[in-house]
Design a binder for these strands. Structure first.
Length: 580
RNA sequence: GCGCCGGUGGUCUAGUGGUAGGACAUGAGCUUCCCAAGCUCAUAGCCCGGGUUCAAUUCCCGGCCGGCGCACCA
């Protein structure tokens, strides 16, 4: 069995994840997290919150998964995701069907994308359109509709289309004006969101790696590109395993190690904010259980860059020989906010106050409309606007007796004295800045898949093969298994009482009294439970229990009344098992 | 979406034109003083629909699902 198959089998058998709606044949690309998986996910998400919300001092919001069409017109997802594709039966090349129709001589069709598919298919016959690659006639070939967004209707009827969000980021961007208020209009600030996103993938693959509904944890850090710098010194010595474009294109390209500081100084990572988050994140991956020997940061190749990104690095993990993307670190510039400002008409900028107000000489006009109106009639208004723009663009144009402006291709001469031109001293207390966005975007499901795959271990205990998940105690869904050595002589009662006490102390506890003790240890090993506590005959005598550690299978005796404190400390990394 | 291969208890699998056997797991009982021991018993299965046939889990067609390759991954 491959690494992935073994993992999927264990995941189903032990309750990490399973394909959804199995009773009805299953649905491709949808998974249900079982009891272990749901808690594992919760643990990873809360470790993420701890790192990217609490410790970075960012905000968290929680928005809806359905958003109106206008949002995705602005974001570019509507056009970018909705393509008609036709595949040539001869050479196998795929082409945009709508573009071929528009390009066909005499078709006269201008907006084929808006037409129903059946109609576009007919147009292929009508205009005898051939494959641009090999010339084969495409008439009669089916057209595939690639719409990666799930659509729906908001309210009755179809007048108000909506889509399931294909990324959580837009839910942050659209609320920017109010979020800036919450941040008291002070840059920089960061906003996070953990939530579901949906993409109607053509072919979901590899269990949790490519699914149609998934969880993202995204951070949008809004910065003033001219003023804000990341606190690089906090991570400057972190060593990054980098796989740059240059190395990817080299024949024998391998990863190279650079500290965050070196990466910035040498220009390997172009943007210091991106470098900062690469540095912050490396320790976090390690903390949740990613094997850092199977981890790298890979730079996007020029052709891979999304429409908004100027530079992008992915965190990738290796599973079964494949590298999978678990996080994208993108510098999105002002693309998103500028788009939403343009489409919504709302203000998506932040007013940045100068330390000291500055005085500037500003050319202004104050056209005498009572003179321009009679002279130029209906064009007067537009001429006034153009004068205003011209004054800012080229004040020298007002030096002569008259000034010439062009409106709708018509040239007009205006007497300078009628323009009210003057140069005024203006005091400016600040300026409007459209922030740039730095975006680390985490795929939670792929991280879960990675953590499970990297935790999967096999060894031998007393000549018997054993499978266990070497999950960090903080990440493991169950922290402690509690067993009576025997299900008799009152041991079970004492053990159940202990299990209740440990749960009350805030630990995730499983109680098990079924079968031989070794079997129970192995059950917990397979779900990655780091510690097991056994109540035995000595417990009845001297009030101590054994604590057994998963990876080493070693045991220590601990006093009953101290066991909850030790386990909490072990879980939180404040104590090591060896020092018990 | 295309092509190839596949789909039998929770899991892994044997097998068959006359509705199925094992292993592991699970539950009950016995046994057991720390790492999947043993014994007894029990629960539980042929992906869905159509066709051929007296009879289909088995053969044929379609669908769904999975693996791999291609394409796709804004």
């Amino acid at each position: 069995m491959s690494e992935g198959d073994r993992l999927t089998e264990l995941a189903k058998r032990r309750g990490f994840f399973l394909q959804s709606s199995g009773s009805y044949g299953g649905v491709a690309g949808f998974y249900t997290y079982g009891p272990q998986g749901a808690t594992l996910k919760e643990n990873i998400e809360s470790a993420w919150r701890d790192r990217y919300v609490t410790r970075e001092g960012h905000m968290e919001i929680d928005g809806p998964t359905v958003m109106p069409e206008a949002v995705f017109e602005a974001s570019g997802h509507l056009d970018g995701f909705d393509d008609m594709i036709i595949e040539c039966p001869e050479c196998g090349e795929s082409h945009r069907a709508d573009h071929l129709v528009e390009d066909a001589p005499d078709s006269g069709v201008e907006d084929a994308e808006a037409l129903p598919i059946a109609e576009v298919e007919e147009l292929f016959s009508e205009y005898d359109i051939d494959c641009p690659t090999c010339g084969t006639a495409l008439a009669g070939e089916p057209i595939d509709d690639f719409n990666l967004m799930f659509g729906t209707n908001i309210g009755p009827g179809s007048s108000s289309p909506g889509y399931l969000r294909p990324e959580t980021a837009q839910g942050i961007f659209v609320e920017f004006p109010q979020l800036a208020e919450y941040a008291r209009n002070q840059l920089p600030f960061g906003v996070t969101q953990i939530g579901r996103a949906y993409r109607n993938e053509i072919s979901p693959r590899k269990a949790l790696v490519r699914v149609r509904e998934f969880t993202q944890a995204e951070l949008e850090h809004f910065i003033d590109p001219d003023a804000d710098e990341p606190p690089l010194h906090r991570v400057e010595d972190v060593v990054l395993p980098l796989y740059s474009v240059e190395q990817q294109q080299a024949d024998d390209g391998e990863m190279q190690e650079r500290t965050v500081r070196e990466a910035v100084d040498e220009g390997v990572v172009a943007d210091p904010w991106v470098a900062y988050y690469l540095g912050v994140s490396k320790g976090w991956y390690d903390r949740i259980g990613v094997d850092m020997d199977r981890f790298r940061y890979r730079q996007h190749l020029p052709g891979e860059l999304a429409h908004y990104a100027s530079d992008c690095w992915d965190a990738e993990t290796e599973i079964g020989g494949d590298w999978i993307e678990v996080t994208g670190f993108a510098y999105r510039g002002d693309y998103d906010l500028a788009k939403h400002e343009e489409y919504s008409g709302e203000d998506y900028s932040v007013f940045k106050q100068y330390d000291d107000p500055i005085t500037v000489e500003k050319p202004t006009v104050d056209p005498d409309m009572s003179a321009l109106g009679p002279e130029f009639g209906g064009a007067a208004g537009a001429i006034a606007d153009e004068l205003d723009a011209l004054a800012e663009r080229d004040p020298d144009a007002f030096d002569g007796e008259t000034v010439e402006v062009t409106v709708d291709g018509e040239s007009y001469e205006v007497a300078v004295e009628q323009t009210g031109f003057s140069i005024e001293e203006v005091t400016e207390s600040g300026e409007h800045v459209t922030p740039h966005t730095v975006e680390p975007s985490f795929g939670v499901d792929r991280l879960i898949y990675t953590v499970l795959a990297h935790a999967y271990e096999e060894d031998e205990v007393d000549g018997e093969e054993r499978t266990y998940l070497s999950l960090p105690p903080e990440t493991a869904p169950t922290t402690v298994g509690v067993f009576p050595l025997m299900d008799k002589d009152g041991l079970a009662d004492r053990a159940q009482e202990l299990a209740r006490d440990l749960r009350e102390a805030g630990l995730e506890v499983t109680y098990d009294d079924s079968g031989a003790i070794g079997r129970r240890y192995r059950r917990q090993d397979e779900v990655g439970t780091p510690f097991c506590v056994t109540v035995d005959y000595d417990t009845l005598e001297d009030g101590t229990v054994t604590v057994r550690e998963r990876d080493s299978t070693e045991q220590k005796r601990v006093a009953l009344e101290a066991v909850d404190g030790h386990l909490l400390a072990l879980r939180d990394g404040e104590q090591r098992f060896e020092s018990l």
